[in-house]
């Protein structure tokens, strides 16, 4: 049974009926009109329910265990994908996946955080929390992209970099810093998509793009709402309040200039229709990629520099 969050129940019920009706309509045209009516109703209800969600409920959606992950999108977006493994220094970190393939006919490098579906897979993927070797694999792939003139597409979905003893021993800070630095210098287009959780520096190591997109129900934050509440009020249960104050949902991110576009999700969220979610994400990436293809290497570096250079709020 798929997990259903309390606030999404009415939407899920309707979306499930639409799905069933769609199956029926395929064999019997008489259901066509009913299907259309129900689809409209589902979309409307989803819009209404989701418009009223609190920031913390959005965070819960971004963490939904049925939500499409990086490999789900890669399977739908990238043709002939070859996953590449390892940082050539220490290990292969399964919480970051990457490789090469074709996107809309173009050769590309893809790098993304990867969470697990099952407990076993989550242990293997460390719940999407990379160790330094994950970031060093990403660096290796960024450099490969640069050398072979391939655009870089990254998909962000992590609670954050792993706070572990061995991660510190192997230089978590340096690995993240170097990944950020490497991205700033790439002479190829870089398009970042926040598809789920955008957790702090661990996310930013995949986040320095010419364009940054965010899925409608994803979030991007300097600290998790739980972590923020624990620091401010010594009380992790006040996370909903922290989520509100941190302004981490898609509309806020757009307003602050941190993202360039919001990718609308299908009714009920990406997990209700991963194919549709992937189609929408694909269209958004392609549109942005086309715009960047006009720039040469130096132009792309300058464009990225200018994009991040202007972020911040101060009086001068």
């Amino acid at each position: 049974m798929p997990i259903v969050l309390p606030f999404e129940r009415p939407v899920v019920e309707l979306v499930t009926r639409v799905r069933e009706l769609r199956e029926l309509a395929r064999s019997d045209a008489r259901f066509g009109a009913e299907l259309e009516r129900l689809e409209e109703k589902a979309a409307k209800l989803a819009r209404e329910v989701f418009a009223g969600l609190t920031p913390m409920q959005k965070v819960q959606l971004s963490r939904h265990p049925s939500r499409p992950y990086t490999l789900d999108y890669i399977g739908r977006l990238i043709e002939g994908f070859v996953e590449l493994h390892g940082d050539r220094r220490y290990a292969d970190d399964a919480s970051i996946v990457g490789g090469i393939g074709r996107f809309a006919g173009r050769r590309v490098v893809v790098v993304g955080h990867q969470k697990g579906r099952s407990t076993k897979e989550n242990v293997q993927r460390n719940f999407g929390m990379p160790n330094p070797e994950g970031y060093r694999k990403a660096i290796r792939l960024y450099e490969l992209a640069d050398r072979f003139r391939m655009p870089v597409l990254t998909l962000i979905d992590t609670p954050g970099a792993y706070p572990g003893i061995e991660a510190e021993e192997r230089g978590q800070s340096e690995a993240i810093g170097k990944a950020i630095e490497t991205m700033t210098a790439l002479a190829v287009p870089v398009i970042v998509s926040v598809i789920g959780e955008g957790g702090s520096g661990g996310a930013l190591a995949l986040g320095v793009g010419n364009r940054v997109l965010v899925m409608e129900h994803a979030y991007y934050s300097v600290i998790s709402p739980e972590g923020c509440a624990a620091i401010l009020w010594k009380d992790g249960t006040r996370a909903p309040q922290a989520a509100e104050r941190l302004r981490i949902t898609a509309p806020h991110l757009l307003e602050l200039g941190v993202v360039d576009g919001v990718v609308e999700e299908p009714p009920g969220g990406a997990h209700q229709d991963p194919d549709a979610a992937a189609r929408r994400l694909s269209a958004a990436i392609l549109e942005n990629l086309r715009a960047l293809e006009r720039l040469d290497g130096a132009g792309l570096r300058d464009d990225r520099y200018a994009r991040f250079r202007r972020l911040g709020a101060f009086v001068a």
Binding site: A185, G201, V208, I223, R247, L256, V258, R309, L311
Partner: peptide
């Protein structure tokens, strides 16, 4: 670390400072 009170804009300073460092290196 980052200043929580400025939220995501603080996180973006990491990219801004490192980008400037890279240009300086070059």
């Amino acid at each position: 670390g980052a200043r929580m009170q400025e939220g995501i804009l603080s996180l973006m300073q990491m990219a801004k400072t490192v980008a400037a460092l890279r240009r300086f290196r070059d």
